[in-house]
Simulated scan of single mutants.
Amino acid sequence: MSNFIRVALPALLLSGCTFANSESMPYDSWELGFSAPDYMEVWIETADVVDVQDHVYPRAWSGIASISKPSNNSGDPRGWPKRAAIGGGKRVTGADLPKQIYVRWQSLVEPQTYLMVINIPEATRELIRRGEKVFCRFDGKWITGYRDSIDIGLAPGGIAKVWVGGSCLPPIEVTMVKAVIDPRGPYEGKSGGHHRPLSAVSKAYVEKFGVPYGSW
C-alpha cells in the first residue's frame, strides 16, 4: 500500500460520524455522484467523506456508478465526456464542505479493486461555495446557481477524474487521481477474491474490443 494511503486513511477513520452545522455552505447539503465510461462497470464498496470540521461520514455512498451500456456495442468508452454529468449518487446531508473523500471500488471489467483518497483543496471548496448568476433553462429564469455537486468518474486502471457542477452551471474539472490497488482484494479480502459479476452486455463489449487503457 502506498505511503499516501497509509498516511491519509488513519486520519480519515479517527473520528466518528457527527452532524456538522454546515456554516460554510449557502445551502443545506451537497451531492456526491459517481460515473464510469460506457460498459466499464464499477461497484463502489464505500465512499467515505471527511468534512472541513473533521467529521467523518462513512459510506456516504456505495453501489453502482452511473453508466451507459448501449446495445449492439454501439457505445464508446474511450475518454471522458466534454460535459460531465453528475452520476448516480446522493446528497451528503449534515456534512460541511468536504476536505477528503476516501473511495474503495471494484473495476469489474478487469477485475480489480482500487482505493484512493481525494484531497479537496480550498480553491475547489470555493467553487462549490460560490454562487453565480445564470439563466436556468429548467425554470426559464435567471437564478443564483451553485456548483453543489461533486462527480467522480472511475475508469479501469484506477483512474479517477473529479468535476464540480450544478443543475444550471457547466461542470469544472478540478483534479485527476491515480488510485492504488488494494492488496486485500474485493470487500477487504472477505469474499475469497471474488468480485461482483460483470453484466452480459459489458462482457460482450470487452471480449470484442478490449479495455481502452490510456484513453482516460
Rank of each mutant, 00 (worst) to 15 (best):
Y187A: 13
G153Q: 05
V201Y: 10
K190V: 06
G185N: 06
Y187C: 08
G131S: 15
M116Y: 06
V177N: 01
R184G: 07
V201E: 13
A123E: 14
G193E: 15
F135C: 05
K161D: 13
A200Q: 10
T124E: 02
G153M: 08
S202P: 12
S191H: 08
A123L: 12
Y213L: 12
A123N: 13
S202F: 06
G185K: 01
D139E: 11
R130S: 15
K203I: 06
M116F: 04
G166R: 00
V117P: 03
K178I: 11
G166P: 04
R129P: 11
F138D: 11
E132V: 03
V177L: 05
K178L: 09
P212L: 02
D182M: 07
C168N: 03
K178G: 06
T175Y: 05
G166N: 02
E126D: 15
R129N: 14
V162E: 01
G145P: 12
G185C: 04
V180R: 01
E188Y: 11
T124N: 07
G193D: 12
K178Q: 12
G153L: 09
I143W: 11
G166K: 00
F209T: 04
K161I: 13
S191G: 11
K190P: 07
S199G: 12
I152K: 00
V117L: 09
K208T: 14
K133G: 14
P186R: 01
E188T: 05
I181L: 08
T144A: 05
I128L: 15
I128C: 11
I172Q: 06
K161R: 14
P121H: 06
W142N: 09
S149W: 02
I152T: 01
I120M: 07
A160I: 07
Y187I: 04
G131E: 10
A179S: 11
F135K: 01
G189A: 06
P121R: 04
G157F: 05
W163V: 00
H195L: 08
V211S: 08
D182F: 05
G158R: 01
G166E: 02
A123M: 09
L198Q: 06
P183Q: 07
V180C: 13
Y187K: 10
S199E: 10
V201F: 04
F138Y: 13
I118D: 01
L169P: 02
I120G: 00
V174C: 01
K208N: 10
V174N: 01
D139C: 07
G157T: 10
V134N: 04
K161L: 08
G157L: 08
I143E: 03
V174I: 15
G165W: 00
P170L: 03
F209K: 11
G157Y: 03
R137F: 14
K161E: 14
V177Q: 02
I143N: 03
F135Y: 15
W163C: 00
K208M: 14
R147S: 04
P197S: 14
T144L: 09
E173Q: 02
D148F: 01
Y146V: 12
S199V: 10
G189R: 05
I120F: 02
G131C: 10
D151I: 00
V162P: 00
P183E: 06
A200V: 12
A160C: 09
I120E: 02
K161Q: 12
